[in-house]
Design a protein around this nucleic acid. Sequence first.
DNA 1: AAAAATACCATACATTTGTATGGTAATATA
DNA 2: TATATTACCATACAAATGTATGGTATTTTT
Lengths: 208, 208
Amino acid sequence: MKQDLTKIQKNILDYLIDRIKGKGMPPTLAEIARHFGYKNRATVQQHLTSIEKKGFIKRNAKLSRSIELTLDEKFFVPKPVLGEVAAGNPLTIYPDAIDTIELPTIARMPKDSFLLRVKGDSLKDAYIFSGDIVIVNPNLEPNNGQIVVAILDDAAVVKRFYKKKNEIELISENPEYEPIMIDRKHPSFKIVGIVVGVYRSMEKKKAG
Amino acid sequence: MKQDLTKIQKNILDYLIDRIKGKGMPPTLAEIARHFGYKNRATVQQHLTSIEKKGFIKRNAKLSRSIELTLDEKFFVPKPVLGEVAAGNPLTIYPDAIDTIELPTIARMPKDSFLLRVKGDSLKDAYIFSGDIVIVNPNLEPNNGQIVVAILDDAAVVKRFYKKKNEIELISENPEYEPIMIDRKHPSFKIVGIVVGVYRSMEKKKAG
DNA sequence: AAAAATACCATACATTTGTATGGTAATATA
DNA sequence: TATATTACCATACAAATGTATGGTATTTTT
C-alpha cells in the first residue's frame, strides 16, 4: 500500500532514521531545514506531510520532534551491497550495487556507511568469514589495530590497520597471508573506511 | 564524583530513562510536569538542573527535549535480559533480569523476536563467538542443521539442531563439547527459537 | 495542451518550550 | 539557632516550534 518516495523524500527519511536511531531524538523542522539547506521550515513541513501520507512516518500534531518511524516493525530493511571485498587476496570492486541484503534493524548503519560482502578467509582469526557482510563507515580515521577496508591497485581488501613511520601495514589475522606494507605516498592506495560491524544471515548455508 | 539523587530526582530520572529508551523521544518539561502532577514547569526545570548538576543527565540549552543520559554509551544500552546463553556448556538461567546487558537498542525489537548475547565458544566452528549477539526468532519450526536456542534443565544453550527418531540431538560445532541427546518427552526441554542472524559490533574490543 | 504533483520561497501566528524571578513551606545540616 | 537544601507554587517572557496561506517554478502525468 505504501507508495514510493521521491529521491528528496527518501533523503529526508534517511536523515530521520539516522537521527532517531542514532541520537535518540528526532529532529525539529528547523533542524531538518538547516541540514538540507532549506531556508524555510514550511518546505520541510510539506515534505514530512508527503512522507507521512505515504505511510513511512507518523506524527503527533503540535508536539515538537514527534516523528515516529513506522518501518520499525520491519525487522529487516533491504540495503544495497556495493561490492565484494577480499579478505584474502584482492578482488576487484564492482562499481554499482551487486546485491541487496536484508539487514536487521538492530545493526546500526550510520549515515554514509555502506555494506560490503567479504570473500576469502584471511580474517578468520578476527571472526570475519567469507560471506559475511561488513558495515563500513568511511568517515572515521583509522586507529592502529582497527579493521579497515582499503583500496590498493584497483582492488579492495579488509585487513587490520597499523600505522608505521613511512608506511602503512595491513595485516591478515590468518598467518597464511603475508602482511602488506604500503608506502604512505603510494598513488593508488586509499583507506575506504572502518569496519564498524559485521552481520551474517543464517538463512542460507554458508559457502565456507 | 556523582552525588546521590533524592528520591524524587530518582523517580524523574527513571521516567527520563523510560521515555528515552522506550519511545525514543525525551519528554518536554511540560510532559514531565503532567506525568508527576506538577502544576508548573519550573518545578521540573529545577529538578532537572539538580539532576544535571549531579551528573546523571546532560542538557543542551534552549533545545526542546534535549535531555541526554550520561549513564551509558550511545550504541549499547542496558536492558533487562532473560539470561546469558551458553554456546559452551550450559549456564544456569537467572530467574530475573541479570543485571543489565549490552543489547543494541537502536531499534525497537519486534515483539516476537529478541536478541541474546552468546557466551562461550562451542559454536566457533559455526562462526559464532563469545560476545556476539544472536537474533532469535521463536516462531519458526527448526529444521535439521539449523542453529537453535534451547532450554534444557533451566539452562539455555545455542547448538545445531538435529531431529532423530525419538530424540533430539544438539551438536556443538566445537568437538571439545559432546553432543547432547534429549528425549522428545523430556519435561524441561524446550526450543526457544531459531538463530536467524548474528551481529557483532566492532566498537569495542572483543573479549575473546 | 492541461492538470497534477513536486519542490521550493516568504510571511504570519498561536502554542509550546525553556528559562528566569520571586515566593512559601518543610526538612536537613552546621 | 541560623542556614542550606529540597520541593513546590505563580507569573512572565523570549525564542523555538508546528502550522497555515499564498506564491513561483519545474517536472510528471493525463
